[in-house]
Design a protein around this nucleic acid. Structure first.
Lengths: 345, 345
DNA sequence: ATGAAAGCGCTAACAA
DNA sequence: TTGTTAGCGCTTTCAT
């Protein structure tokens, strides 16, 4: 039971070399130039580090410097392909800069999200945060802004918040989607939105939908816009469809699904109940996923530039971290979506 | 520019209460019972903590105790739905125990994986590791075992490794899949495997495939088993299919895809080239994903119990962490798969 | 029932 | 060009 297997510390390196740990630390942090350390000693130290398999203890470094080289990211659900693809993009990018990622799911629950934020910021001490937020108001994030804590909003934004954000043009996307439904002949177009309905992306999509109805002189009735609760999507979608499709009068003939989760539930319904799409019902969804490409019928969808969303988010965050942007006004990136025409409308 | 906004430390709490930080620490760690701290002081401390919004600095705690309450998980690709669903399951479970997750992608690259392991273990000091490994031999992980570092193998296992593992019965799954192809009338069944081919799950699937051919007295020729490189799946699949389907003699009439990535590439080919499935070609895949359920045709697949894989993995890891199992033999969980019959075969 | 003090491994200000 | 030292915030041993 010797202590031989203990991991070497910076002190062990220093002692076995007969130098001070300051020196080792300098080498570790590439500050040999700055302090005019000779090439030879640098090499000697580097070799010893290699030889002993030394890796700096991040906890100690973190405690000392206050920097963790950790980025936190919170999304509603890391297993939703929309988010997992974005996260993957970000993972690759942060690695390049020596950072690492802690990704968490909020389940569309603001309270859970606040807890995650606090744990990431105060306990784990991440250096920055990327938020696809479920929060209602910017004020809930005031404590971050007050501390000057670097974070960016991704996908979803908030009113009156003074931080960088990146998202897509949801309103135009939804407008196009709805219009495509109408052009395909639908006269009675419902939208299946999702709750909480105050989420910026959803609000914009609802606006786009309503605008398209207006622009095409269709009945704009609030009773054609349904909010499906996130926690019970399938049941809720099924109930609504049961009702909407069995109405004697003015049964719907078009549906705009606000996201991929809802679309999948609708598709499940169409399958089970053998609803003919697009004959009986035109259909289009926001968020393009693999399923839409292969399904029968294939599903027209609004595609979002996932990797751009990811890379812009982390780019803006790094700009914040690098810092001299103190006074600059926060950037807001609004990326275009793309309508993918398929057979469902 | 006052220092007011600085986060409170344990010392701040102690001072503002006129007690020692030992006391505060005890309260923080629920050791008031153990040390016989009075209920009243405990309450007083707790209230102050609440009032000042104090959260313990994990870096300091980590440095002091050597425990991070972090679990690392490495999979080939966190955006593959197979893994992202497992990770999600684990995320929920670790949270319950006060742990947090750092998930990383290895891209099927052993070197990258080794680097990730080192960074998670030595630098981030995660308390445990869940590995869906791309490594070739257990010996590469010897340094972990030697240190008695807690980790479990998930999905993929390694020969002669003395740690807990959880996976599914790949051989039987592949056997069933292949047999279904044969029962559906295929006489010339190819398998599209993936490289690196030494991965345990893939090896087992290959064995299952070959066994099924033998058991059904079909030609067992090595030239019907193809290894698709992970980094270039689509092109490789397309090339192989181009060749296999345009042979004058004994063209293939059945394909077993080793995983969902490969299956998607095949399906893409079928679409583009208008290959009739199952008429011209029977098809079945390992890994069930949403796409298979909705596609045209729907794709028969071997379903793996994702949430069980996740929950078993973290359960076994926690058993390791909780510790008194020193001498116990490591558990190996082998979960059953399920054949989902659809129209592709 | 509570406090004092050492020390985890590192960085950075200051000394030499 | 290199070394000494203080201290980041916490837990834990030992005192009281």
């Amino acid at each position: 039971m010797t202590e031989k297997n203990k991991k070497p510390s910076i002190d062990d390196i220093a002692k076995s070399l007969g130098v001070s740990k300051t020196l080792v630390s300098m080498v570790l942090n590439n500050k040999t130039q700055k302090y005019g350390i000779s090439e030879t000693t640098r090499k000697r130290v580097e070799e010893k580090i290699e030889e002993m398999g030394f890796l700096p203890n991040k906890a100690a470094r973190r405690l000392r410097t206050g920097k963790s080289f950790l980025i936190g990211i919170i999304v509603p659900d890391i297993s939703n392909p929309f988010y997992s693809k974005i996260i993957r993009e970000i993972e690759d990018k942060v690695q390049l800069n020596g950072y690492h990622l802690m990704a968490c799911s909020s389940d569309e629950d603001s309270e859970k999200e606040m807890n995650l934020i606090k744990m990431l910021v105060d306990s784990q001490q991440v250096d920055g945060l990327i938020l696809s937020t479920t929060l209602k108001t910017a004020s809930e994030l005031d404590f971050l802004s007050k501390r000057n804590f670097p974070y960016v909003l991704m996908d979803r934004t908030l009113e009156d918040v003074d931080v960088p954000s990146v998202g897509v043009d949801n309103k135009t996307g939804a407008y196009n989607a709805t219009e495509m439904l109408i052009k395909a002949g639908a006269k009675n177009v419902a939208m299946f939105s999702i709750s909480p309905g105050y989420i910026s992306t959803i609000e914009e999509r609802k606006k786009g939908y309503l605008n398209a109805l207006k622009a095409n002189k269709l009945n704009v009735k609030a009773d054609m816009l349904f909010e499906i609760p996130f926690s019970d999507i399938k049941n809720s979608v099924f109930e609504h469809l049961d009702e909407l499709l069995n109405k004697k009068t003015k049964s719907i003939d078009g549906i705009f699904a606000a996201n991929n989760n809802i679309a999948l539930a609708c598709m499940e319904y169409f399958r089970e109940k053998k609803i003919k799409v697009p004959e009986k019902l035109k259909f289009v969804s926001f968020d393009d996923i693999d399923v839409f490409h292969f399904s029968n019928p294939t599903i027209s969808a609004i595609e979002q530039p996932l990797s751009d969303i990811g890379s812009w988010s982390i780019k803006l965050l790094f700009e914040l971290l690098e810092g001299d942007s103190e006074t600059r006004k926060p950037v807001h990136i609004n990326l275009p979506t793309k309508f993918i025409a398929r057979t469902s409308c």
